[in-house]
C-alpha cells in the first residue's frame, strides 16, 4: 500500500436522504420528507458503532443506505476510502459480499419455503464461492459459530420449526457466512425477550472478537447500545446530535436530547 493516508472502514460524508411522494399528474404539492440531513460519521475496522434514536429518527434509513437497499439523495458513502454510490454489476456484488445486514424481525427475514441450509447457502451460491462440499462445511461451521449446535440437526430444518432467538441466529449466520468486513444490525433484538437479547449481544461480541468485523448497531435502547458499543451516535430527526464513546455519552451527555433519552431510560440498566 503506497498511500499513506489511512481511511476508515466505512465513512458517510454529508449523506442526505429525501423521500418525495410519488409524482402524479396534475398534482403540484410536494411534501418532501427529510429522513436524513447531512449525516457524517465513520466506523473503524472491528468497531461496534451504535446508532441510537427514536422511531422515525432516520436510523433504519441510515442502515439501508449503507447496504445499498436505498440510494442517498446527496452525499457519499465510502468503503476503505472508495465511494460506493455509483457501483453497479460486479462492483456492487463485491461490495455486498463485504457489507451484510441483520434485520429486525426474525419472523419476516427468513423465507418460510427455504430450509436453514438453503438460507445460509444463498450468499455463497450467488457469489459463486466453493463447491457443494465446501459450502456444506462452511454452513455447518457457521451454524456452530452462532451457537446452533449440533449443526447437523439444524441444517435441514425450516424456519417455522425454530424459536425467535434461533431464527435470529440463523439470520446472523447468513450475514457472517461471507466473512464480511462490516455488518449493519438493525434492531436485531427488539422482537426478542431480554434474556435472549443478552445472549445475542454476547454472540455479536464474540463474532467481533473472532473475525474483527465492524458493526453498525441500530437501536432505540440506550442501555443496549451502552452494553455493546464502543462509540455511540445519537440521531434525532435526521440529524446526528452527538457522537462519542459509549461511556462519555452515558456519563457526560452534552446535547439536551441525549440527556432526555438517558432520563427516560428505565432504571434497571444492565451492565453485562
Amino acid at each position: 500500500m503506497s498511500n499513506l493516508k489511512k481511511y476508515p472502514l466505512i465513512e458517510m460524508k454529508g449523506v442526505t436522504k429525501e423521500y418525495s411522494p410519488r409524482k402524479r399528474f396534475f398534482s403540484k404539492c410536494q411534501n418532501k420528507v427529510l429522513a436524513l440531513n447531512s449525516i457524517d460519521f465513520s466506523i473503524e475496522k472491528g468497531e461496534i458503532f451504535g446508532l441510537v434514536g427514536q422511531s422515525g429518527s432516520g436510523k433504519t434509513t441510515c442502515g439501508r443506505l449503507l447496504v445499498r437497499l436505498e440510494e442517498p439523495t446527496s452525499g457519499s458513502i465510502c468503503l476503505n476510502g472508495e465511494p460506493i454510490n455509483k457501483l453497479k454489476g460486479i462492483g456492487l456484488k463485491t461490495y455486498r459480499s463485504k457489507v451484510q445486514m441483520i434485520f429486525q424481525d426474525p419472523y419476516q427475514s427468513l423465507n418460510p419455503h427455504l430450509s436453514i441450509a438453503e438460507t445460509i447457502l444463498e450468499p455463497l451460491v450467488v457469489n459463486g464461492l466453493g463447491n457443494a462440499a465446501t459450502r456444506r462445511e462452511k454452513v455447518l461451521h457457521t451454524l456452530e459459530i452462532v451457537g446452533l449446535s449440533p449443526a447437523d440437526d439444524f441444517y435441514d430444518r425450516y424456519p417455522h420449526q425454530l424459536s425467535g432467538g434461533q431464527r435470529q441466529r440463523v439470520a446472523i449466520a447468513r450475514a457472517i457466512v461471507l466473512d464480511p468486513d462490516f455488518i449493519v444490525a438493525d434492531e436485531p433484538t427488539s422482537m426478542l425477550d431480554a434474556t435472549i437479547a443478552i445472549q445475542l449481544f454476547q454472540l455479536l461480541t464474540q463474532i467481533r472478537k473472532r473475525f474483527d468485523m465492524a458493526f453498525l448497531f441500530i437501536t432505540h435502547n440506550l442501555a443496549a447500545a451502552n452494553y455493546l458499543c464502543d462509540r455511540i451516535a445519537v440521531i434525532h430527526e435526521g440529524h446526528i446530535v452527538e457522537v462519542n464513546t459509549a461511556n462519555n455519552i452515558i456519563q457526560h451527555p452534552e446535547h439536551p436530547y441525549t440527556k432526555r433519552l438517558i432520563q427516560v431510560q428505565p432504571g434497571f440498566d444492565f451492565n453485562g
Binding site: 447496504v67 429486525q104 424481525d105 419476516q108 423465507n111 444463498e122 450467488v126 457469489n127
Partner: peptide
C-alpha cells in the same frame, strides 16, 4: 418488501433469482 427478499438482495442475489 418483506425482509427476506431484502436480505437476499443484500446477499447479492440477482433479480431473476
Amino acid at each position: 418488501h418483506r425482509p427476506f427478499i431484502e436480505a437476499s438482495r443484500v446477499a447479492g442475489a440477482s433479480h431473476l433469482r
